[in-house]
């Protein structure tokens, strides 16, 4: 739809959406997180943004919905529809290496495995510490400050840190 009247192009929409940060992890944006699945612009300029929740109960989702609408309406969109699709379910496999590096620089250990990897009971897996890069670490809790993270402690640099769970 590029150049067709006043409509915003799909490319421009993706660009605008990538300016919306995750409210809990502001170094990454919602397109990097894999929340935005599809952008559709119909012949009348009506925009539909298809999104998927990271975790079913993630409170950030309501913030995302508001911000997506506001961002597009502020930038010339006349009508924005949000559609939520649960399938395929969100996975950390959609995070690129660039995104994972951003998480690490921010102090959050990025997901290290594939979502389909089996984790048994009392797993003795050690996550690499995002601060000192060693893996003498210990799981403190499978659950953290947001649904997507678990709590860890580094036995070498004695820093607590969060791990973006493989999901």
């Amino acid at each position: 739809m590029v150049g067709n009247g006043n409509y915003i192009s799909e490319h421009k929409i993706w660009d605008l959406l990538s300016q919306i940060p995750d409210p809990d992890i502001p170094v990454i944006n919602i397109t990097e997180l894999g929340i935005v699945r599809q952008v559709i612009v119909d012949d009348f300029g009506k925009i539909t943004v298809v999104i998927t929740p990271s975790y079913s109960g993630c409170p950030a989702m309501s913030v995302f919905k508001e911000e997506i609408k506001n961002k597009l309406l502020e930038n010339g969109a006349t009508s924005v529809d949000l559609k939520i699709e649960l399938s395929p379910p969100w996975t950390t496999d959609w995070l690129s290496d660039v995104t994972k590096n951003k998480l690490k620089k921010y102090g959050i250990a990025p997901p290290e495995e594939h979502s389909s990897d089996f984790i048994g009971l009392f797993s003795n897996k050690k996550v690499t510490c995002p601060h000192c890069n060693q893996n003498e670490t210990k799981l403190t809790s499978q659950f953290g400050s947001t649904p997507c993270k678990s709590l860890w402690f580094c036995n070498l640099c004695h820093q607590p840190f969060e791990y973006f769970k493989c999901h």
Binding site: Y55, G57, S141, F143, S145, P147
Partner: peptide, 20 residues
């Protein structure tokens, strides 16, 4: 504290699933 977080996180998952 960690278990407080765990139980409320699980609660949140359940609420999200119920809402969908």
């Amino acid at each position: 504290l960690e278990e407080d977080l765990a139980m409320t996180n699980i609660s949140l998952d359940l609420f999200g699933e119920a809402e969908s």
